[in-house]
Amino acid sequence: MFVEELNVGGRRVPLVHLAKDENAIVFSDVHFGLRYGGRTLSLHEDLSNFLDHLNDEDKTRLLVLLGDIFELWSGSLRDVFQDALNPLRLIARLSSSVIFVPGNHDRISARMRFPGSRWAGEIYVTPDILLLDVEGKKVLLFHGHQLDNLFLLTKGLWRVQSYIYLFSEMLFALPGPLEWFFAALATLTVLLLLFLFHATSLLMEATIILASIILFSPLIILLWRDLQDKVWYGFVQKIGPRLFKSRLRGKSIESLAVSKPLKKLVSFLESYPEIGRVDVVIFGHTHVPGFLVSNGKVFINTGSWVKNSYNSDNGVENKTYVRIEGGKVRLCKWDGKEVVLFEKEIQGKKQIFNNNFYGL
């Protein structure tokens, strides 16, 4: 295995060349630190058992963490580290290279750099996409939020949540309830400022407005962090599919494989001669594992390692991952052992389906 970097539209995209006998594992959406209603939703203990198995197996050459591994939108840093500690220890023991492709929930880690060797292999962080070359066949991997129309319409505005998270965690790090005292003091300062000063010029008015926004922000951010899980998981996730047709969460692989954003991304990459045809597309984000073979391309959604994944009452699987080995790509489920849900020879015609799987 070796890695080269391509310049694709001004972005540096890693291209990993895997020999046919080299094994790669891909999973996404673990959400270390995710809590709701007093329950731990991340299946980090099951993931630890799976990683133990990979260490015993000792044949994984490449491990790809395909985004939303860490819940850095709403989980407290204490819970994130608590959930992630043992899995990260087990990943460190693997005799493999690791590539982390951040998702929307852990985007703030996209700028991390790890020069030189770590553990038995290398560790790379690539902000957006990753390409594999398996015996001349190209595999495209990305988290999947790039297909979400809500994110596309807001033009990157969704990234603000990452900075809100960082600022709120800084406030929460203050002793006791001092974060609320600080927020209240800043708010009172705004009210005092508005009462004492009257703008006599456009510049002074703009200065007062800017100062008010800055001083109000701690209270707004703390209130949002306190309410966001109730709003998001308790309300939006339940009614979102009916109100927001553009939302990806819960959509099947069949609808995503023919979506305009995905077609545009694949066509853009295929326009580069050094990439050529994309044969396999792997992504996550929706928490709904699935597979589809269409027009000679294989599309796979990695699913999630989260309890009560979206639409779980309808039988959506979790603890799923992708294995690339021996010129084949498989969608698998960890159930104390590996259960193959789908298998396709990248270069051949043979394919195996588990008819009990939700993705069919």
Rank of each mutant, 00 (worst) to 15 (best):
172 F>G: 04
172 F>E: 08
173 A>I: 09
173 A>F: 06
174 L>D: 10
174 L>M: 13
174 L>R: 02
174 L>P: 07
176 G>E: 12
177 P>W: 10
180 W>Y: 15
181 F>K: 13
183 A>W: 04
183 A>S: 07
184 A>L: 10
185 L>V: 14
185 L>D: 14
187 T>I: 00
189 T>H: 09
189 T>R: 14
190 V>H: 04
191 L>E: 02
191 L>N: 08
191 L>P: 08
192 L>W: 09
193 L>E: 01
195 F>V: 03
196 L>T: 12
198 H>C: 12
198 H>P: 15
199 A>F: 07
202 L>Q: 05
203 L>N: 14
203 L>M: 14
204 M>D: 09
208 I>L: 01
208 I>E: 01
209 I>Q: 10
209 I>V: 10
209 I>M: 01
210 L>W: 08
210 L>G: 01
214 I>M: 01
214 I>D: 03
215 L>C: 05
216 F>K: 04
216 F>R: 02
217 S>P: 04
218 P>I: 12
218 P>R: 06
218 P>W: 05
219 L>S: 13
220 I>P: 02
221 I>Y: 11
223 L>K: 15
223 L>P: 10
223 L>D: 05
223 L>V: 15
224 W>V: 00
224 W>Q: 12
225 R>N: 11
225 R>A: 04
226 D>T: 11
226 D>H: 13
227 L>A: 14
227 L>C: 13
228 Q>K: 13
228 Q>S: 09
230 K>D: 09
230 K>Y: 02
230 K>A: 12
231 V>S: 01
232 W>K: 13
232 W>S: 11
233 Y>Q: 07
233 Y>L: 11
234 G>T: 06
235 F>T: 10
235 F>D: 00
235 F>P: 02
236 V>N: 06
236 V>R: 07
236 V>P: 07
237 Q>T: 02
238 K>W: 12
241 P>I: 00
241 P>A: 01
242 R>S: 08
242 R>W: 12
242 R>K: 08
243 L>R: 03
243 L>N: 05
244 F>Q: 10
245 K>H: 02
246 S>Q: 12
247 R>F: 14
247 R>E: 01
248 L>C: 09
248 L>M: 05
250 G>Q: 01
251 K>M: 06
252 S>G: 11
252 S>P: 07
253 I>Y: 00
253 I>H: 06
254 E>W: 13
